[in-house]
C-alpha cells in the first residue's frame, strides 16, 4: 500500500504506530490490510480500540479523508465510521483470487479515476469479507449512493456467481454518508504493476492524487 501511494503521489506516506496518540495533519489517512493483533477476536475489533484510532476518528470527524482496505475496512466498520459489518466468508475459507469489481460511482474523491459502471479485475485476499447490514441500512446506503463497489461475474452482472464471499447485495465497498470515508475488501495496491499483473488498481490511486492535489 505504501508503495502504491508513493508511486502515485511521488511522496512516501508517513507511517504512524498503533500506540501513537496523535496523527499529524495530512491529506489522507489509509488503514491498510493485514491481520491487526492477529485478528484472533473479530477481525479489526482489537485495532478499533487502539490508541491511534481515537485520533483517526477525530480527524475523520473534521473531514480528513480516510480509506480502509481489507483489514482496514474491517477496522473502520468496527469503529462505526462506516455502516455494516464484515462476517466470515460464506464459504468459511480464506479466498485469494482476482474478482470482478464494478465501480458504482465515479463521483467521489476516491473513485474519480474510474468511469461510472467500469468493471475492474482486482484481487481479494481475506477470510472475513462477507459484508452484512440490515435491509433498512442497505436500502438507505443504496439510496444515498454510499455503495462504492460491487462484486460482479465475468459478464459484469451482480450475480451470486460473481460474489466471492456472500456479501449482501454483492457489496464490496461502502462510503460514509459524506463520502469522505471509504472502506472496501479488494486490494487495488496489488494491481498496479504490469510486470506482475494487471493495472486496474491504478485508477484509484491516480484519482485520489488528482482529487487531493
Amino acid at each position: 500500500m505504501a508503495i502504491a501511494l508513493e508511486q502515485a503521489s511521488g511522496k512516501a506516506p508517513l507511517m504512524v504506530w498503533h500506540k501513537d496518540s496523535e496523527i499529524p495533519d495530512v491529506d489522507l489517512i489509509v488503514v491498510p490490510g493485514g491481520f491487526s493483533y492477529g485478528d484472533y477476536l473479530r477481525a479489526g475489533a482489537m485495532a478499533a480500540h487502539s490508541p491511534v484510532l481515537r485520533s483517526l476518528k477525530e480527524k475523520a470527524a473534521k473531514g480528513t479523508p480516510v480509506m480502509g482496505v481489507c483489514n482496514g475496512f474491517q477496522v473502520l466498520t468496527e469503529t462505526g465510521l462506516l455502516p455494516g459489518v464484515l462476517m466470515r466468508n460464506a464459504g468459511l475459507k480464506f479466498i485469494c483470487r482476482n474478482v470482478g469489481l464494478k465501480v458504482e460511482t465515479s463521483q467521489s474523491l476516491f473513485t474519480g479515476g474510474y468511469e461510472d459502471g467500469q468493471i475492474l479485475s482486482i484481487p481479494v485476499a481475506h477470510n472475513d469479507g462477507n459484508y452484512f447490514a440490515g435491509n433498512e441500512t442497505l436500502d438507505r446506503i443504496e439510496q444515498n449512493g454510499q455503495v462504492a463497489f460491487r462484486y460482479v461475474d465475468e459478464n459484469g452482472e451482480t450475480s451470486a456467481a460473481g460474489n466471492p464471499n456472500g456479501s449482501a447485495r454483492n457489496i464490496a465497498g461502502v462510503f460514509n454518508k459524506d463520502k469522505t470515508v471509504l472502506g472496501f475488501m479488494p486490494h487495488p495496491e496489488n494491481a498496479i504493476d504490469p510486470a506482475v499483473g494487471n493495472t486496474d488498481g491504478r485508477g484509484l490511486f491516480d484519482g485520489l492524487v488528482r482529487a487531493l492535489s
Binding site: I3, K93, F94, I95, C96, R97, P123, A125, H187, E189, N190, I192, D193, A195, V196, G197
Partner: peptide
C-alpha cells in the same frame, strides 16, 4: 487449495 493461501501479498508474485 491455493485460493486459501494469500499468494499475492507483498505484490511481487509474477
Amino acid at each position: 487449495v491455493w485460493e486459501q493461501y494469500d499468494h499475492l501479498i507483498m505484490g511481487d508474485t509474477a
